[in-house]
Design a protein around this nucleic acid. Structure first.
Lengths: 335, 335
DNA sequence: CTGAAAGCGCTTACAG
DNA sequence: CTGAAAGCGCTTACAG
């Protein structure tokens, strides 16, 4: 089956290719009669615009890229990413854009090479950057490459300073919940503090605790079961006795609860910053934050498309998270 | 930054664009001296081939597509897909190919539209088809569209008949394990029997049980917690008393165990056909099949690339699954 | 080995 | 409103 082109349509109709192009793209410059004939003929012949020809002549790939650079093994366990992709994809497909996905693992520099190549080849029109790090080199790199980008989870503020969204409101949800349960001393097992949002979470938790006169300790882990288990065990061994624990993801929450059980300290409360099946079906079930990653993905995709179209920011505010209260929402033990 | 093109390189070097093209593509037709100069200049100028120009002139998109059509909510909970994508992506990126991802949910026909568009626009060179259904219309559609494809998990046999891989070997792993534990009557909670691999699993389990004189019942669910819980509850209510249960995914295994606990029948054995964090961290921990979805993804991607290059099938046999024995590997209760 | 030229299938000023 | 033409940046026969 030879490809159907606008040349075929033009020939069959006895008009020029230009007219066909204008007609098919809804541009002015053709009579309505011609347009109708062209559209009908295109449908009849089953014409689709050649993606590469259009990309070449318009210098637009109609595709946006995402580079996931977490450990592949962890990616599979975090529903966050798949849900995020779902939201992104939803917006893109509605806009006729494609999603290019690359997974590069954690080796430093591999994502840089991908961006350079994408920019050089004109393969994508823009990218969504995930998991922003402290002193993240990517914004500068992408700016230098001339590749438009959106930092996922970062709300461009009117003052020109960036602000990670949500973390403060989320911290308030969690800390106030624990405060209501009577907790006066808590600990937060964070993810890697090289990630900007983990630093923001820690700072927000600290602030919310300060407001309420709650004591708080922090321990840094790396989202894996083992590190979280170790951190919690260390906390207890050091004689630090919080009555509630906050975990930056679900796997660490499960690990922490295991560590507590191992130390016969099952009466502590626990909250996970990420909701998942794990929180829902573990035993005990774990109170957690539903952050609606799909909506966040929709937002980032929409922001990027607006940026590419040169339109002004018109994106709705992020959806507030919801705290899903489960069995680990235990009251503070009376001393 | 204006794009660097082969025209620039040709001009700077005082050679023709053709020579530059040959040199850069490793084609014969240039002297080594010229080639070296061209390559050096390309590197100096930071040249990258324009993806769209190359695609247009070669009629190749250098991209392959995947349409995920499960329920988005379920996608997030099944690490299987992310791990699969990881394997696919790994092979593709090594071959300089891009991965286009679309998630269409379960609405019938939406995937068809995507394939038609991809084929019409020349956006992808081929696709990997997942979750093959009984009487799946996609192979015929893709053939009609002239879009090369690989059916994920299907091994093209030499006899020309397709054969879903693994299911038989996997069934044997599971059933023999249960037989060794002394089970003589089991039940298998399957996923939707509209999916080819679920039918294959059921048939394989039936056969393996027959060989060993084990009685087996089947109940169809849809991979969700609720249906699996209902099916198990119904089984028990009907007076059917297997001593071991097989579940076609991890969520259903968790649900089944819950149903057993609700009915005070905790002593049954259970095996999940999919491994995941859920099996690892639920209580009790669940014996499950590690199927190495990343390797399966690598295989499908490699097969598709071979198909696109017109090379012969050269793909290694699929990796055998491993049974991860955990707490639900209980012996049959003595009557 | 090298260069001039046509072609991939569109878009888009530019004249009529 | 319509048509002839150039251009996007490559690849690839085709002559020299």
């Amino acid at each position: 089956m030879a490809r159907v082109t606008i040349a075929h349509i033009a020939e069959r109709l006895g008009v020029s290719k230009a007219s066909v192009s204008y007609a098919l793209n809804g541009q002015p410059g053709v009579s309505e009669a011609t347009r109708a004939k062209v559209v009908a003929m295109a449908a009849e012949l089953g014409w689709h615009p050649s993606f590469s020809a259009r990309a070449l002549s318009r210098s637009r790939a109609d595709a946006i890229g995402m580079v996931l650079r977490r450990d592949p093994a962890l990616l599979g366990t975090e529903p966050y990413y798949m849900r995020l992709l779902e939201g992104v994809e939803d917006v893109l497909s509605e806009a006729g854009q494609s999603l290019l996905l690359r997974m590069v693992g954690t080796t430093p520099g591999r994502d840089t090479a991908v961006y350079e190549r994408w920019a050089g080849e004109g393969r994508v029109d823009g990218v969504i950057v995930l998991d922003r790090a402290i002193d993240d080199p990517r914004p500068e790199l992408l700016t230098r490459l001339g590749l438009p980008f959106v930092l996922h989870g970062v709300l461009p503020s009117t003052e020109g300073t960036e602000r990670i969204e949500d973390q403060h409101r989320d911290a308030e949800l969690i800390v106030s919940h624990l405060a209501e349960l009577g907790h006066r001393r808590i600990a937060h097992i964070t993810g890697p503090l090289s990630l900007a949002h983990e630093v923001d979470r820690r700072d927000a938790v600290r602030q919310e605790c300060a407001v309420r006169g709650i004591e708080v300790d922090f321990a840094e882990a790396d989202y894996t079961f083992d590190t979280a288990h170790t951190r919690v065990t260390e906390l207890l061994a050091a004689g630090i006795r919080p009555t509630a624990l906050v975990f930056s993801n679900d796997v660490m929450a499960v690990a922490g609860l295991r560590a507590l059980a191992d130390a016969d300290a099952r009466d502590l409360a626990a909250v996970s910053w990420d909701d998942s099946m794990l929180c829902q079906y573990s035993s005990p079930t774990i109170t957690s934050l539903e952050r609606y990653p799909d909506r966040a993905g929709r937002r980032s995709a929409a922001m990027l498309l607006e940026l590419l179209d040169g339109r002004s920011w018109n994106t709705a505010a992020p959806s507030p998270s919801t705290l899903v209260v489960r069995e680990t929402s235990r009251p503070a033990a009376r001393p």
